[in-house]
Amino acid sequence: MSFSLKKDKQGVVVVGVDGQLIVGNRQELKQKVLDTLESGGRKFVIDFTKTGYIDSSGLGVLVSLSKKIREQGGDLRLCGLNEDLQTLFELTKLDTLFAIARTPEEALAAF
């Protein structure tokens, strides 16, 4: 299982990405988040603490989800990026597009 979804007491949906977020599994993530958005979820945290690597398709799906969540008046935050993943976001300038917290706790506290 690549992705886990949990809802905290405040209704924030925390999505854990286990292993990698790449072209072969990005649709699964997208569908899970969109299904939750459709059923009323508005606050999302994607946790990369257990993620080894993300390719450009994975980055693209995050951009797309961020837009769709914002369109519904929601908010998406990312957290748990290791040093390499953080560098990837900085190189692609996507660090300017996303709210990125160090840990899931910090991401949840920011809502």
Partner: peptide, 12 residues
């Protein structure tokens, strides 16, 4: 181009 879903492969 920053909010486009695709087009980052070669750059990465």
């Amino acid at each position: 181009r920053l909010e486009r879903e695709d087009g980052r492969g070669l750059f990465v």
